Structure formats: C-alpha cells, structure tokens
Amino acid sequence: MSWADRTRAGAYGAAACAAAYGSMKLAQALGANALADKDPLRPDLRERLLARDPLFVASHWVLAGAAVVGIIVALATTRPWRAPLPRRLLLTIAWTLGILMIVRSIGPLGIGFVSDALVLTGIDEPPPEHAALARDLALWDLLLWSPFFLLWGVCWALAAWRLGRDRPPPTIH
C-alpha cells in the first residue's frame, strides 16, 4: 500500500470512527445503554447520564448529528465533490479534530492514558467512596476509549495531512 493510499485510508478511518461513535450515541439517545455505564464521567454526572437526564439525552442527539457531519467532512477530504466545501475549512476542521482527539487520548484533560495510569497505579487517589468506580472507569478508558480517540485523531490528522498536500484544482474564470 502506497503512502498516498495510507493517508486516504485516514479519511476513511475517520469516517468509520465517526460512524461507530455516532451509532453508539444514537443508540443511547434512543434509550439503549450502549456503553453509557463505561463513560468516564464524574459520579454525579454518571448518575444523571444513566438516569437519562434530558440534558444527556439531548447531548446524545447532538453528538449523533455531529458524527454524521464528521462522516461527510472526512469523506469530503478525499472526494472530488468537496469542491463546494472550502479547502481551508476542511483542513482546519480535520487538523483541529485530530489534535483534540489525540490530546484527549493522552490525558492532560483528566481522562486519557496518563490520567488512567495515575488512577490505576494509585498515584492519583480518587475519593474513597468512588475509588472502585474510578478504577473501573479508568480501566475502560485505558483499554477502550483512549485507544479509540487516539486512532480517530490519527485518522483525522492523516486526512488533514493528505488534503494539505493535495493541490487544489485550478479555477476557471
């Protein structure tokens, strides 16, 4: 597989990750658990999520819709029909999403590989009443969510890199 094919695969990977994430959020919006109990949230927010608080239900609908937009944007980075979409806008969106997802997976925001490792090794002690839950959620984040966001972020970065290297088609005046 050539480098160009691998970078094109980044756009398809970003679209596939968006589809998977959007499907999960749509399922949650419709009432399914779909890993909601594994979401690395503070205990008070987790209770609201699992109780189907209207704010969380609405956020699932918004995130499902955002995932559809993400699929379109990811595919637009490789397709000739991206012409109506400004190239700079696609580049900005793809780089921004890639960087944010990679940063989220690493963990300086309180969730991610670093934060999970700190909780699981006991260096960062959660409150005793939530310690077992915090370790369980850190393990899920370490094994599922952080790798997923890292993969998704790398795919967005590859899509952005490829789009940045593509020469825009000449404009006819």
Results as ranks from 00 to 15, higher is better:
residue 24 M to N: 05
residue 28 Q to C: 00
residue 29 A to F: 08
residue 29 A to K: 02
residue 29 A to G: 14
residue 31 G to F: 00
residue 33 N to I: 02
residue 33 N to L: 11
residue 36 A to F: 03
residue 37 D to L: 01
residue 38 K to M: 10
residue 39 D to Y: 15
residue 41 L to F: 03
residue 43 P to M: 08
residue 44 D to N: 14
residue 45 L to C: 00
residue 47 E to N: 06
residue 47 E to F: 00
residue 50 L to I: 01
residue 51 A to I: 01
residue 51 A to D: 11
residue 51 A to T: 01
residue 52 R to H: 11
residue 54 P to H: 04
residue 55 L to P: 05
residue 55 L to M: 09
residue 55 L to H: 10
residue 55 L to I: 09
residue 57 V to D: 00
residue 62 V to A: 09
residue 63 L to F: 13
residue 66 A to V: 11
residue 66 A to M: 14
residue 73 V to G: 03
residue 73 V to Q: 06
residue 74 A to C: 07
residue 74 A to S: 15
residue 74 A to H: 08
residue 74 A to D: 05
residue 75 L to R: 12
residue 76 A to K: 04
residue 78 T to C: 12
residue 79 R to D: 10
residue 82 R to M: 04
residue 82 R to P: 12
residue 83 A to V: 12
residue 84 P to F: 07
residue 84 P to K: 13
residue 87 R to Q: 08
residue 88 R to F: 05
residue 89 L to H: 02
residue 90 L to H: 05
residue 90 L to I: 05
residue 91 L to E: 12
residue 91 L to F: 03
residue 92 T to E: 09
residue 92 T to L: 11
residue 94 A to R: 02
residue 95 W to T: 10
residue 95 W to M: 09
residue 100 L to V: 13
residue 104 R to I: 04
residue 105 S to W: 07
residue 106 I to L: 15
residue 108 P to Y: 01
residue 109 L to M: 11
residue 109 L to V: 10
residue 110 G to Y: 01
residue 112 G to D: 02
residue 113 F to D: 00
residue 113 F to L: 03
residue 114 V to C: 02
residue 116 D to N: 14
residue 117 A to R: 14
residue 117 A to M: 15
residue 118 L to Q: 13
residue 118 L to R: 13
residue 118 L to I: 08
residue 119 V to I: 15
residue 122 G to E: 07
residue 123 I to W: 11
residue 127 P to R: 13
residue 128 P to H: 09
residue 128 P to Q: 12
residue 129 E to P: 09
residue 130 H to W: 10
residue 131 A to L: 04
residue 133 L to E: 12
residue 134 A to N: 05
residue 134 A to W: 06
residue 136 D to T: 09
residue 140 W to G: 03
residue 141 D to N: 15
residue 143 L to I: 14
residue 144 L to V: 14
residue 147 P to C: 04
residue 150 L to I: 02
residue 150 L to N: 01
residue 150 L to Q: 02
residue 151 L to Y: 13
residue 152 W to Q: 03
residue 154 V to G: 09
residue 156 W to K: 03
